[in-house]
Each structure stands twice: as structure tokens, then as C-alpha cells.
Design a protein around this nucleic acid. Structure first.
Lengths: 88, 88
DNA sequence: TTGACTGGTAAGATTTTTCTTACGTATATT
DNA sequence: AATATACGTAAGAAAAATCTTACCAGTCAA
């Protein structure tokens, strides 16, 4: 769904066409994405267009970045440790 | 689990102490993380030490980066569009 | 206003995930 | 050798997720 929405905004029926599951199932998925802040809703007449929220993956990226900082720190400590051994 | 393992390598029992679930449940989680390549195993006697694989989130980061490229492109196109209107 | 279209929600069935207990194997300790 | 420790795996129970059908409300078009 996210892959489809990144290309263009879509209505629920338009999204449902690309999946085997029923329309209500798609609605339920969208509700979850909406609650998670990954997607936003814009009502146009009887249709509701969903679109991907720009930068919505920020929190995930930040979470991953924490780990990468840890690894960087470790590597740095290792390098310093090795340098000390080389010139006593 | 990942949060614990990023600090230091741990044996299964050491990990299980920090959770309410049983040790076998922890083992099952570790198997999944192992299969996913997020974690690696090193046997030391009868213990097995697990540690976080450095850079294991690369694929996730790449996946997210795809979206961010899309957003960048859109923004760029929008900027160019606006510039055209300013100087006719 | 009536009928068609869009889509959300509830209820319940189905599927999947996740847990626990029981047990087997390998390594260590005595 | 006998016992204890660390850990994986199988089987089945329990919990959570995901789907479908049925139904309701809002919007549009005749």
C-alpha cells in the first residue's frame, strides 16, 4: 500500500483494486496506517483520498541511527585501543 | 532484545533474565533474529553468546531511503515549477 | 426523492504469532 | 560415571492479527 501511495494519492477503492482482499480489509489497513501517522486522509465528496505523509519514517530512521552511533563508537574505541598498542 | 545486545553480547539465560517470558520463548525469538541476519551466534562451551550484527539495518535503511528520494524528487519538481511561474 | 456509489464499522471465522511445558542433547563439574 | 547446567526443539494452548460478510451513513446523479 505504501508503495502504491508513494506514487500518487489514491482512494480506497482504487487501492483495493490492487489487492486480493476485500475493500473493508483495505479500510482496516488504512486505519492502522492513519493511526500510525504514516498516511493521511483527505475527503473529496464521497471519496477519501489517502496519501503518504512525507518524512513519516523519521522515527524509524532515528531508531536505527541510535544503533549506528553505537557501532561507530565501538569502532572508534577499538581504533584508539589499537593505536595505543602500536606506540608504547 | 536488540537494545540489550547493542550494549554487550549476551547468553540466552542472561537475556531471559530481563524478560518475563520463559527461556525457550527467548530462544525462539533469537532464532528469528538469527534467520533475519540481525544477530549472530558464537558458541562458548555450553553457552551461546548472541551479538548484534553491525550494519544489520542496512536493508531497512535503504528501503526507507527509497521513499525519501521520492519525496525529494517531488519537492524539487515543485520548486522548479514555482520558479518558472516567477520569471515568465 | 430514489437509486447508485463510496467507504467506515461490527461480529465472527480463520489464520498467524507467540507463549509454555516437556523433553532431548551437549558441555561442564563432582 | 553421575549429576548439573545451558540450550534447542516439538506439541499444543493461548493470544493476536487479519480476513469476510452484513450493515449503516454520507454523497452524488437521475
Amino acid at each position: 500500500m505504501l508503495d502504491l501511495l508513494v506514487e500518487a494519492d489514491r482512494s480506497v477503492n482504487a487501492l483495493a483494486e490492487d489487492f486480493q482482499m476485500s475493500r473493508p480489509a483495505v479500510s482496516q489497513h488504512l486505519k492502522i496506517l492513519l493511526d500510525a501517522g504514516l498516511v493521511s486522509e483527505q475527503r473529496q465528496g464521497r471519496e477519501r483520498h489517502y496519501h503518504l505523509v512525507p518524512g513519516c519514517f523519521g522515527p524509524v530512521r532515528d531508531w536505527i541511527a541510535q544503533y549506528e552511533r553505537f557501532w561507530d563508537d565501538r569502532l572508534q574505541r577499538l581504533q584508539q585501543h589499537l593505536l595505543k598498542d602500536e606506540q608504547p
